[in-house]
């Protein structure tokens, strides 16, 4: 048994190295003096100041945040309402509708991306609206975020005790009061989790953004992609390092929050 255990530890160590090698190499190279090639030429932080003075990177960061916040707010409201309706009220073909909700979750993002690109192009020809830009990106992001929010909130609604809301109504609360004072606080963890998931999906998205963006609405993932296509530069490594830092801090915070709740 001990031999098997050591073998398992060794294998797992190798797999962790494999998973983290790309992340580590980006961080290390963001501090490398060398501009080209992959040799180590000494420590520097100058790529971070280069990045700070790069107007493209700053506007991309701004676009990414505006896009993520706007789409998450919209998707969280729509997705939560959708989940409430699905959870409590009946309508024809409800089962089919619930299944359709999984389509945006399971289809490859490139399919979604080109379908939307095509749709916006047709609309543009017909009505002259929907020029590619931040607006079309927000619309597209909301589309793939809604189902994720709805699925997360719905699972929270399943666990809700109807007696609590019935008690509120019995005590004379209006439906509106019952929702804001009883239901909403109870489903808030689900809404927050759904919103957070939607937010990270938006921040992380490259493919849908790439196809539905226009001039001037470049986001960080698009900026990284187009820079890498021209050849990796150290300031892109610096930018990626900052993004990695935000993701790691975010993941750790969420994990800690979840643990505190349990």
């Amino acid at each position: 048994m001990t031999r098997g255990h050591w073998l398992l530890t060794l294998l797992s160590g190798g797999l962790y190295t494999f998973l983290y090698a790309p992340i580590v190499v980006v961080i290390v190279y963001s501090f490398n003096t060398a501009r080209y090639g992959s040799g180590w030429r000494g420590f520097t932080t100058k790529w971070y100041s280069t990045l700070w003075n790069n107007p493209q990177a700053l506007s991309a960061a701004e676009n990414t945040l505006v896009l993520a916040v706007a789409s998450t707010v919209l998707a969280t409201v729509l997705g939560t309402m959708l989940a409430m309706g699905l959870n409590r009220y009946w309508f024809p073909a409800k089962r089919l509708a619930s299944w359709l909700l999984y389509v945006p979750v399971v289809i490859p993002d490139i399919v979604m991306a080109v379908a939307m690109l095509l749709f916006y192009a047709l609309l543009r020809d017909l009505v002259g609206l929907f020029n590619l830009g931040l607006t079309t990106m927000v619309i597209s992001h909301v589309t793939f975020q809604i189902p994720f929010v709805a699925i997360v909130v719905r699972s929270r609604l399943f666990g809700l005790d109807p007696a609590l809301e019935e008690a509120a109504r019995d005590l004379g609360a209006t439906p509106w009061q019952t929702f804001w004072r009883v239901t909403f606080p109870l489903i808030l963890p689900g809404v927050a989790a759904g919103g957070l998931l939607a937010f990270t999906l938006s921040l992380d998205d490259f493919v849908v953004s790439f196809f539905t963006s226009g001039p001037g609405s470049t986001t960080l993932p698009i900026l990284i992609y187009s820079s890498v296509k021209r050849g990796i530069t150290p300031d892109i490594n610096a930018l990626s390092t900052l993004i990695i830092l935000v993701s790691v801090v975010g993941t750790v915070l969420i994990t800690l929050m979840q643990r505190a709740k349990q």
Binding site: Y16, L19, Y20, A21, P22, I23, V25, V26, Y29, S38, T200, D204, F206, P221, I224, Y225, V228, I232, S240, I243, I244, S247, V248, G250, T251, V252, T255
Partner: peptide
């Protein structure tokens, strides 16, 4: 430690292999 790479942008983890 398994979740962190998942939340790290795929584009970054991919181009890192070029290096």
């Amino acid at each position: 430690l398994v979740v962190i790479p998942l939340w790290t942008n795929l584009l970054i983890r991919t181009y890192a292999w070029q290096i």
